[in-house]
């Protein structure tokens, strides 16, 4: 039906060295899964080398292949740790954190192969095996992180939508505040018993609760739900009137509860998106410590 008169000339640079992208491409599929392919190929080559290169059966680590694998592994681990720096050092240049993440993910998986081959499958109760185990723990938590990153954003996004479109965390909190104000105003004529119940709902901090509450999204002590249940019980014993105040407050509290539910789901997903890092990062530092001990000890005491 139509066309552009002046077609853009591709590859034209105007001053900046920006790489343009037209579509979204995730870190897992980055560059047609370049890093996945590279890691898989390296894993295969290293495994074949391990199987077919004739080397002494014991103390594999001190053979030339063992040293090579160990050096590669140690350097890889240090490089993988550098992602934390890369993420925070916003220096000029044509780097992309997504490319780094992609490489981090796939080379991180490769480290398990490198480390395990380097061990020569000799395990014991020593610092060497500790380093290896910590490495697996780091990679394991990382794999969990990949799963979290690959699945939870969709759930997070879906939870934000309602009939009128998506709302943000800030808007959820604002909506709760607004409901609280309305409930507060409406509840003024209530008797002491009912007012206490409503007051408990108003006083409860939506961000309160334990870490356990947060990550499970389960709040057994929710004052709002408690108030709804108790008020309903109260209402059942009282005489019905037209334009019942209690039923109006009940409707408002129900709206508040559903908004709370949504906020809690939001916070739960957000905490899972971060929680795994609380294992991944500290264990990485433990790993580096164990690794240093391992390196020092092999040079001095082996």
């Amino acid at each position: 039906m139509a066309s552009t008169a002046n077609k853009p000339v591709s590859g034209k640079k105007t001053g900046s060295s920006r790489q343009r992208q037209n579509t979204h491409e995730g870190f897992l599929t980055h560059r047609n899964m370049y890093w996945a392919k590279l890691s898989a190929a390296l894993a295969l080559v290293l495994t074949l080398l391990y199987i077919f290169v004739p080397l002494p059966g014991t103390h594999f680590g001190s053979s030339w292949l063992g040293y090579t694998l160990g050096t590669i592994g140690a350097l890889l681990i240090l490089w993988l740790t550098m992602l934390g720096m890369r993420k925070r050092a916003i220096t000029p240049g044509r780097w992309s954190l997504k490319a780094w993440t992609s490489a981090h993910v796939y080379l991180g998986l490769l480290v398990t192969v490198v480390g395990t081959l380097h061990s020569g499958f000799e395990f014991g109760w020593n610092v060497h095996t500790l380093a290896w185990a910590l490495m697996l723990l780091v990679v394991g938590s990382g794999v969990f992180g990949i799963w979290v990153y690959a699945t939870l954003p969709r759930a997070l996004s879906a939870n934000r939508y309602d009939e009128e479109g998506a709302i943000t965390e800030k808007q959820m909190i604002e909506a709760l505040r607004s409901l609280d104000r309305q409930i507060h105003d409406a509840a003024q004529p209530l008797d002491a018993q009912a007012a206490t119940l409503v007051g408990q709902s108003l006083d409860q901090d939506p961000f309160g609760g334990t870490i356990w509450n947060r990550v499970t999204g389960n709040y057994p002590n929710c004052a709002t739900r408690h108030a709804i249940n108790e008020l309903r019980a109260l209402r059942a014993t009282r005489q019905r009137t037209k334009d019942d105040l209690l039923s109006r407050i009940d409707a408002q509290l129900t709206r508040k509860e559903s908004m709370l539910e949504r906020l809690r789901q939001h916070l739960k997903l957000k905490s899972w998106l971060q929680a795994w890092l609380y294992v991944h990062v500290p264990v990485t530092f433990a790993l580096i410590a164990a690794l240093s001990a391992h390196v020092v000890s092999v040079f001095f005491y082996w």
Binding site: S16, S17, R18, Q19, Q21, H24, E25, G26, F27, H30, K87, I90, P92, G93, R94, W95, S96, L97, K98, W100, T101, Y149, P153
Partner: peptide, 13 residues
């Protein structure tokens, strides 16, 4: 150099 930082600094694309 490298263009918009927000895009470069996004870890997931």
């Amino acid at each position: 150099e490298g263009g918009p930082s927000c895009v470069r600094a996004c870890p997931t694309g």
